[in-house]
Design a protein around this nucleic acid. Structure first.
Lengths: 188, 188
DNA sequence: ACCTGAACACCGTTCAAGT
DNA sequence: ACCTGAACACCGTTCAAGT
């Protein structure tokens, strides 16, 4: 595999991100790990923000390529996709956080990948609706509801705002399951 | 009002935060605006992170003091509190973002204020449950579900991940209303 | 086209010193 | 107890120059 300099830079940056957040992604250390000078990155990315956006885009494409194709139209595809998303986010908090922020709308590569992933999820939601497991609302809006919950649940768990004690065990995964249970009961 | 230096510092920092995020909160500019030297802040806060935590704590206490007391046990108190939260977050995105991150668990003042606010919300949820507007689940866990949705919906809207086009109009406010409608139908 | 080394402005933090 | 000014190490970014 002939790794281009660009790929090496993104890989090094992603590793630093995981280790200590965006502040730990210094162009100097990125360059060192990629075996180039500390400002070689400027020949591949406009600035540090663009480099971070490239990490986010790579991550999105990877997740995309990992999602099983056949599953898409199964009745529980949406539920499964959400649990997969939650598990991924909890294991890679910094990459998850990178998803928001200014990068999202300013970077083309990223926006395109995000739009594609969202379209895919909407199809899964439609399958669940057809199977009667989700209310018959506008699929796009129903998707937004589900995504918002997964997003917020992960965020709360990561920042320690979910009480971890016995009774109310409100782990992100449980909140996703709860929501599907409630929505499944609404045959409205 | 005899503003202490500490209060001036936090006020200046909050203004800078709103203007350009945490990166714009430089101790030098904070000092300048508060009329002190660029490292006077170190006599009041351990470091920059502690100063940011102080902003978050002040914000939480303000929101707390603004919440109407009588409303707490009304059947729609939880719904109203969530809409108020969403409106606040959309108007102060940087302060909202500050709520998560490392500060939350490491700062005592902040943790205490957050715990208090959460307890208050749980009581509102119990009132809604008693009125049959929310399912009879564990109140703490039901609160977590609602908070997660509000959180995630705001996050998605702020980062532009909610399609703003006509049909699926998935503004954060609408998602909150949707959830309450669905949960209200589940008399389970 | 891609890379390097020096340089610039800026920042968080520390320290010795002042009242 | 609170503040100042100088100093240090570090960072993003720019520039002139090399292949």
């Amino acid at each position: 595999m002939p790794k281009t300099t660009r790929e090496s830079l993104v890989a090094a940056a992603a590793e630093l991100l995981d280790r200590g957040g965006p502040a730990a992604v210094t162009l100097r250390e990125v360059g060192r790990r990629a075996g180039v000078s500390h400002n070689a990155p400027y020949k591949h990315f406009e600035n540090k923000a663009a480099l971070l956006a490239a990490i986010a885009a790579r991550e999105l494409e990877r997740r995309e390529s990992m999602a099983p194709d056949e599953e898409e139209s199964a009745p529980d595809a949406a539920h499964a996709a959400m649990l997969r998303y939650v598990r991924w986010a909890l294991h890679h908090p910094e990459r998850f956080r990178l998803t928001f922020g200014p990068w999202s709308t300013e970077n083309n590569e990223l926006t395109e990948a995000a739009t594609h992933a969202r379209a895919r999820f909407i199809r899964a939601v439609q399958a669940a609706q057809a199977a009667g497991r989700l209310p018959q609302a506008d699929p796009e809006r129903m998707s937004a509801l589900l995504l918002a919950l997964a997003h917020g649940a992960v965020q709360l768990q990561l920042s320690g705002h979910l009480s971890r004690q016995g009774k109310g065990r409100a782990a992100a995964k449980n909140l996703v399951d709860d929501l599907f249970r409630y929505l499944g009961g609404t045959s409205h």
